[in-house]
Write a protein that binds this DNA or RNA. Structure first.
Length: 851
RNA sequence: GCCGAAGUGGCGGAACUGGCAGACGCGCAGGAUUCAAAAUCCUGUCCUGGCAACAGGGUGAGGGUUCAAUUCCCUCCUUCGGCACCA
């Protein structure tokens, strides 16, 4: 019986300390405490799914928690909050199937996932918990939307301003004026060709469509014109690119965002149309190839197609346009290999040489990018080359590559060359290099009034409405006389009504449209109106949640300005790489808008970003129910404890890497904790082990201890958690071999382990005779002098091959080392009488003798 | 196709800024303890040859720079992630 007393009862210990932290509010963050530096550590908050946590979640959470606990010990005032991104499709799909209200499902799921997260002992300030589906929260999501609705973007100052400051052109009537204002709002309505997904019964953002299929569920997506709410994220394209320079993010993520925004610099060029009083404007990044433009292509949807098509081409053009319109995104991608098009029977005039060139339509030119028309230079553009070859169109070389053979092939029309070179067949510009030519021709176009420098972005405005129930309602009404009006701030939150039927109608009418007594309203002035029945996309709530954590209970403001000033920006943001473009781009956009309006004081929300890698199943495959390789965190905690779980997740490998799970690996770190426990605790009494004594540590122990303190601290700062754990294992192995273990050393081990395995650390700390929690103990200092080795082992190489190893005093000089090495038996043997040409001595590393 | 990341023992991984490849953990083998087992402890464990001392090879493949390359350069292969007619 009494043998039981001293064993490592992780389940009991973990429960005890989790209750202690909760009851004593150990991790409450103090607002605006200027006596300490602040540190804001943020996790990407989870969607509370019915499946609960998977082992991937705790990976990021553990990393952030280690940092949070470490920073507290380093004297920082740490803000470390958690919440729920709880709007979204799964709860609604479940409601459609079972009739359970999404609010109900969501509440249950949150309770479960909160329990799971708490069972891992993370040091969150739970008083700041937020939930995007709570009216007290989405009130402010709606409030930000209203601000956007009531703002416009000032091009010359490159910033958003209140709509009242918009300068309206003279001579407009009331209706035109209203239209003008509505068109300039940052949140605006438009009839746009959207990604309509019949299976989900909703439209999707470009970012949510992958290869013509919905990101969620993989259903086909079609183009369909619909009235939708849009956010003018494109106005911020330039700033979204520029300010990436300010943040400490992985380069790969920055690049992904840059590519997504897709800035290209070039020129708009105007082409006259032969026999018409019309101009076709094209955008090109290669104005230097203008002399090689042998035909022109317009998107099938281009407005001039109807006007310019000759009578004999009408029939064919009409047919082609109809086919193009019918194509889904998937079809367009599938057909990408074989280009199609029709000649419309009209000719444009090339401004540089006045040559007549045929005008075609083809769906390889997109109406939504640039001007919806291009000049085709088949000799120097892959797509144009493919098209020209298929339809036998003229190919003229205007750029000469350096390689002669290559150039000959281009001349013969057998090769397309897209690189830089020297201009030929380009009149007065012959002989100029590509980059220089670009500038010269752009200036020439500008001077002759035929074009100008232009910049285009791939980024499109953000489609912000969904035909779903479970999302934030728009604080918008449509009046009977066709006006769009916003609710006033006092009317917020506009709560989501309870409904009986969650099914989307299938024709694009959202479920809310069926709730007639909610939809129909009478405005204060007596006008009848209908509420907007679309809801906001899931991304809305997550765009600003990091601000609500600063002041979660504020009912007067989304957040208090002083608190914002104190806590922002987020110092460390940890989450999955799958949010590289979606969430991270959207929230940066909102943040910049809020910055323009003066509600936040930093340009960027997230200073440092770290992505955790995915955890695979034991079979090396992605975890999934169907494969049966899902690891349940609850089971791991029951079998090995939360500390082992945390430690293993960090020990698996580098945080950012993709790595497979191994239960035996969990057992390995569990053994390490057991070993530490046995080192400190007497297994019979449960008290301190007899071998732990108030003695001075010997030199070797002291050195290893100080080295470990340094390494663990350095590794936490650089997110090398796996190597930090390995260093602590080495130290504990060493201490285990001692007959008498210095208590002071053990205390330091417990302190540096505490961010990783806080429960066992607290328990041991208590057993070592401390009454307070160690959460705010100072991080141990290391002594620089004690770290230094007295003697160093040097490898001796002859011609780069290791022959022997010698031990020298750390302060031995080069000459002493040389003498010793040359007198070494094995070296003499290896030299076999030859004289060394050179002896390279790298102090503290090795000696290489070259013969 | 283009862009990005990565390829190291049986496995997860380590190696600072070009300086002893394989730390730490898992697994495996042998031993101690035990009536036996679990647990624990000790020893060994990159490959080839050898009883051994030792010799040779070795970080996806091939080449290069260097006294010295997992690390830098070039070519190629494989895996993963992103983009995919954006003119």
């Amino acid at each position: 019986m009494c043998e039981n007393k001293g064993i490592y009862k992780y389940n009991e210990i973990e429960k005890k300390w989790q209750e202690f932290w909760e009851n004593t509010r150990t991790f409450k963050a103090a607002d605006c405490d200027n006596s300490r530096p602040k540190y804001y550590v943020l996790d990407m908050f989870p969607y509370p799914s019915g499946q609960g946590l998977h082992v991937g979640h705790p990976e990021g959470y553990t990393a952030s928690d280690i940092t949070a606990r470490y920073k507290r010990m380093k004297g920082f005032n740490v803000l470390h909050p958690m919440g729920w991104d709880a709007f979204g499709l799964p709860a609604e799909q479940y409601a459609i199937q079972t009739g359970t209200a999404p609010a109900e499902t969501t509440r249950k799921n949150i309770d479960n996932i909160r329990r799971q997260i708490k069972s891992l002992g993370f040091s969150y300030d739970w008083a700041r918990e937020v939930n995007t589906t709570n009216p007290n929260y989405y009130k402010w999501t709606q409030w930000i939307f209203l601000k956007m609705f009531n703002s416009f973007f000032d091009e010359s100052e490159q910033k958003a301003k209140p709509i009242e400051q918009l300068r309206i052109p003279e001579g407009l009537n009331e209706k035109e004026k209203r239209q003008y204002i509505d068109d300039h709002r940052l949140a605006y309505e438009a009839e746009v060709a959207v990604n309509w997904c019949p299976a989900l019964g909703t439209v999707l953002a470009n970012e949510e469509v992958v290869g013509g299929l919905s990101e969620r569920g993989g259903h086909p997506v079609f183009r369909k014109p619909m009235r939708q709410w849009m956010l003018k994220i494109t106005e911020y394209a330039e700033r979204l690119i520029d300010d990436l320079a300010e943040v400490d993010w992985p380069e790969s993520i920055k690049k992904l965002q840059q590519d997504w925004i897709g800035k290209s610099i070039g020129a708009d060029v105007d082409f006259k149309v032969d026999g018409f009083d019309e101009i076709i404007r094209v955008f090109t990044t290669r104005p230097d190839t203008l002399f090689g433009a042998t035909y022109m292509v317009m998107a099938p949807e281009h407005r001039l197609v109807d006007i310019l098509t000759s009578p004999d081409r009408k029939e064919a053009v009409k047919k082609y346009r109809e086919e193009a319109a019918r194509k889904s995104d998937l079809d367009r991608t599938d057909l990408a290999k074989e280009k199609t098009g029709e000649f419309i029977g009209a000719y444009a005039i090339n401004p540089v040489n006045n040559k007549k060139i045929p005008i075609w339509i083809s769906d390889y030119v997109l109406i939504s990018y640039g001007t919806g028309a291009i000049m085709a230079v088949p000799a120097h553009d892959d797509r144009d080359y493919e098209f020209a070859t298929k339809y036998n169109l003229t190919i003229i070389q205007v750029v000469q590559p350096e390689d002669k053979e290559q150039s000959e092939l281009v001349k013969q029309g057998k090769l397309c060359f897209i690189g830089d070179g020297i201009a030929i067949n380009s009149g007065q510009f012959n002989g100029i290099r590509t980059p220089e030519f670009k500038e010269k021709i752009t200036n020439w176009l500008e001077q002759t009034g035929q074009g100008k420098k232009a910049i285009n972005y791939k980024l499109r405005d953000w489609l912000f409405s969904r035909q779903r129930y479970w999302g934030e309602p728009f604080p918008i009404v449509h009046t009977e006389d066709g006006r769009v009006a916003s609710l006033s701030e006092e009317d917020l939150p506009l709560e989501l009504p309870k409904v009986a039927d969650y099914k989307p109608s299938g024709n694009g009418e959202p479920p809310l449209a069926k709730v007639t007594d909610w939809v129909n309203v009478t405005l204060p002035d007596g006008t009848k109106a209908r509420r907007e029945t679309n809801t906001m996309p899931q991304w809305a709530g997550s765009c600003w949640y990091y601000l609500r954590y600063l002041d979660p209970d504020n009912s007067k403001e989304g957040w208090n300005p002083d608190k914002e000033k104190y806590w922002m920006p987020v110092d460390l943001y940890i989450g999955g790489a799958e949010h590289a473009v979606l969430h991270l781009l959207y929230s940066r956009f909102w943040h910049k808008f809020l910055y323009d309006m003066g509600y936040v004081t930093t340009k960027e929300p997230f200073k440092k970003l770290v992505n955790q890698g995915m955890i695979l199943g034991e079979d090396g495959q992605k975890m999934s129910k169907s494969r049966g390789n899902v690891v349940n965190p609850d089971k791991v905690i029951t079998d090995y404890g939360a500390d082992s779980m945390r430690l293993y997740e960090m020990f698996m490998g580098p945080l950012e890497a993709i790595k497979p799970w191994s239960m035996q690996g969990v057992e390995g770190v569990h053994r390490f904790l057991q070993k530490l426990w046995r080192l400190v605790i007497d297994k019979e009494t449960g008290g301190l082990n007899q071998t732990v004594k108030d003695i001075q540590a010997n030199e070797e122990t002291l050195r290893l201890l100080n080295q470990t303190i340094k390494k663990v601290g350095d590794d936490i700062e650089s997110f090398g958690f796996n190597t930090a754990i390995s260093a602590m294992m080495i130290l504990v192995n060493h201490l285990s071999k001692l007959d008498a273990v210095p208590k002071s050393s053990v205390e330091k081990v417990v302190l540096i382990l505490s961010p990783f395995a806080p429960h066992i650390a607290e328990e041991l700390w208590q057993k070592l005779g401390h009454n307070d929690s160690l959460a705010y103990e100072s991080w141990p200092e290391y002594d620089k002098e004690l770290i230094k080795e007295k003697e160093i082992e040097l490898a001796i190489q002859v011609n780069g091959k290791i022959k022997d190893k010698i031990v020298v005093p750390a302060d031995a000089d080069e000459e002493q080392i040389k003498q010793k090495v040359l007198g070494n038996d094995k070296v003499i043997a290896a030299l076999a009488g030859k004289t060394p040409k050179k002896v390279i001595v790298i102090k503290s590393r090795l000696v290489n003798i070259v013969v």
